[in-house]
Design a protein around this nucleic acid. Structure first.
Lengths: 190, 190
DNA sequence: TAGCACTGTGCGCTATAACGCACAATCGGG
DNA sequence: CCCGATTGTGCGTTATAGCGCACAGTGCTA
């Protein structure tokens, strides 16, 4: 991941202060954090503690997350068609992770695109895995429970991912779909 | 306002660690923060710096916001009626449940379509709710934590849904997006 | 012009974050 | 039983967060 966000926080704090047209002195009064410390933070010279961050957020009348929200690893990702795609299997398969696995929610979200004539099979995930497919484009064929089912644009299906299954595109246009993969409770994905 | 969230963070960190069944030693390895320090934080004996918080989030494979998301000032009481979350102004708003809430996975998936000029606001969900948006069409404006952010086709964002937020479409074409709403563990939606 | 108030920065001092290490307690295996 | 590995906690040391204060620079007014 990227570097510690001390510089980013500093820039953000200065921006917030200037929006309010507060001097460092005024900001110090509002936040009960010393003027000198606020200056250090703004210049990225200091990594404030949680308590100090809290005082700052409170003094600026922000929720805590508002103060640090831009310090997230870009929650906002660029267009998947324009981002780094991962060819994970045979030719004609694109896979992009839209939301990586997060133990807090227990799932990850994948974007998949299958060119006409392509196919990808999935060995059983670990026990308890549930998959949710949402078809955006084309017609997907899913082999599950010993049978092929067809899913067209707008369709969705939920199935146990802890069994062998296959995705294939026998149509003439690409298939695009999302796959929300939920892992059983208390299971870390890797 | 309420007290500095040092105790809350400690509880949260311990919870996250126990979910993963990590010892302090293992967590120290993953985060590059010393075992003794992690212990101090968990017991609320220390107020970690931003850099240390960052290391922890990174080591736990969380976004920074996910780590501190429950530490919001959030003076507003969580809305207990999470059943009908969309407060509308129904004109120009289509909402379809793609996957209804399932306690087994802890989330539901919604499809939303906003006509140009339409807007919908959402009172805070219950505490701990995380939302994941994937923009399919158009350009969505999301008001969160006191600021508007723009999300175009293909973008996605993850944010804490336990705070007031607004979706609006100020563009000239419809906006279509998916919303994966995850409710905190041990919380039944209805 | 001088004087005053304000602004942001640097410095030295104090408090505490963060660390490595030792250790008591626990558990499992021989 | 003993031994080794693991676990979480406490302690002393080091680095730095956070502070009050002094000060250079700026702008305004008499």
């Amino acid at each position: 991941m990227s570097e510690p966000p001390v510089l980013q926080l500093g820039q953000r704090l200065r921006q917030l202060r200037q929006e309010r047209q507060w001097s460092l002195d005024e900001a110090a009064k509002q936040t009960t954090v010393s003027k000198a410390m606020l200056g250090q933070i703004e210049r990225g010279e200091s990594s404030p503690t949680l308590s100090t961050l809290w005082k700052i957020a409170t003094g600026f009348h922000l929720s805590f997350t508002a103060l640090v929200t831009d310090l997230s690893v870009a929650s906002t990702e660029p267009n998947p068609q324009a981002s780094n795609r991962v060819v994970s299997d045979d030719r004609g398969i694109d896979v992009v992770t839209l939301f990586p696995y997060d133990p807090l929610v227990g799932f990850e979200v994948m974007y998949l695109r299958l060119e006409p004539g392509s196919q990808t099979q999935s060995d059983p995930h670990e026990q308890g895995v549930l998959e949710h497919l949402i078809i955006l484009e084309g017609e997907l064929e899913l082999f599950i429970d010993g049978a092929w089912i067809r899913l067209k644009q707008g369709d969705r299906v939920k199935f146990a991912g802890d069994q062998f299954h296959v995705y294939r595109n026998t149509g003439k246009t690409p298939v695009v779909f999302y796959d929300i993969i939920h892992y059983a409770k208390s299971s870390d994905k890797s």
